[in-house]
Design a protein around this nucleic acid. Structure first.
Length: 270
DNA sequence: ACCCTCCTGTCA
DNA sequence: TGACAGGAGGGT
């Protein structure tokens, strides 16, 4: 499910409602979420919530008895949801994988396919993703161009790697390349300077617009309020195989790269 | 760049 | 019944 815009949506919704609240109880229901020993969470205060790559990062304050501060990175993978109180009311108990009871309200983690993960950290620095945020200044033309210059990897799979730019997934990779006019199969090193510039600009434009839309709901995505994202109406190529391109009328093509569907317009993308 | 795995659900 | 699904990690 969620790529950068969807995770950003959830983090922005949760930050104001969770920050400052105490955790009364924490239950890790699904043993698949266990990643080594489970730290003690009850009795801590939530100090903040933000996005880190494609993960939601929750900061917990120190706890009496010498337990220092704690960070939890929630990766929603394909179908994970973090649902805040009102939305959480409609969830069947059997679907809950983890539950935080706060002094007022509750946060549930639900995940049909159970691919989501919890990772605990003792310092904030450890919790940072390897890659650079695509919306940060560090993700400019100079850096992206230098990275691409040495890469024979197809540009679409390159965009989806999380160790360079952290946050782009399967939907937005196709959409960004359409907006940039670049064929997804081209090796990174083959991009000209102006194409790199268009790629960087398209990345920012599309991710920002998607955040304004609260993300894309392709099938499963719900935000922390249980609502869907509206970026779907802006999708130009994703899931549009054989439909005419909105710009030139050429049928959209689907190819498979690294076992994932890629959509593009053979007329607009060179 | 290919293959596979994890897991569950939906659609043709 | 098989293909496929906003992800990622592993092995050739």
């Amino acid at each position: 499910m969620p790529e950068l815009p969807e995770v950003e949506t959830i983090a922005r919704q949760l930050a104001p409602v969770l920050t400052g609240r105490a955790v009364r109880r924490f239950a890790l229901v699904d043993p698949m979420l266990r990643d080594g020993p489970v730290p003690r969470v009850a009795g801590r205060r939530i100090d903040g919530v933000r996005r880190s790559g494609k993960r939601v990062l929750l900061a917990f304050g120190a706890r009496g008895g010498g337990d220092g501060p704690l960070w939890l990175a929630v990766h929603l993978r394909m179908t994970g949801r973090l649902l805040w109180t009102d939305a959480a009311r409609f969830v069947a108990p059997s679907r809950v994988r983890a539950r935080f009871e706060l002094d007022r309200g509750r946060l549930l983690f639900c995940d049909t396919r159970r691919l989501g993960t919890f990772t605990w950290y003792r310092s904030e620095a450890e919790a940072e993703p390897e890659g650079v945020d695509p919306l940060s200044r560090a993700a400019g033309r100079a850096r992206v161009g230098a990275w691409l210059a040495g890469s024979r990897e197809p540009i679409k799979t390159w965009l989806m790697r999380q160790d360079r730019l952290a946050g782009i997934g399967n939907i937005y990779a196709s959409e960004i390349l359409f907006a940039a006019g670049v064929d997804p199969r081209r090796p990174g090193a083959s991009l000209e300077v102006d194409e790199v510039a268009r790629l960087v600009a398209a990345t920012r434009t599309i991710l920002r617009r998607a955040i304004r839309c609260s993300g894309t709901t392709f099938s499963d995505f719900q935000d922390a309020r249980g609502e869907i994202g509206s970026y779907g109406r802006y999708l130009r190529v994703y899931d549009r195989e054989d439909e005419p391109c909105s710009r030139c009328g050429t049928p959209i093509r689907r190819v498979v790269q690294q076992q994932r569907s890629t959509y593009f317009c053979p007329g607009c993308q060179r």
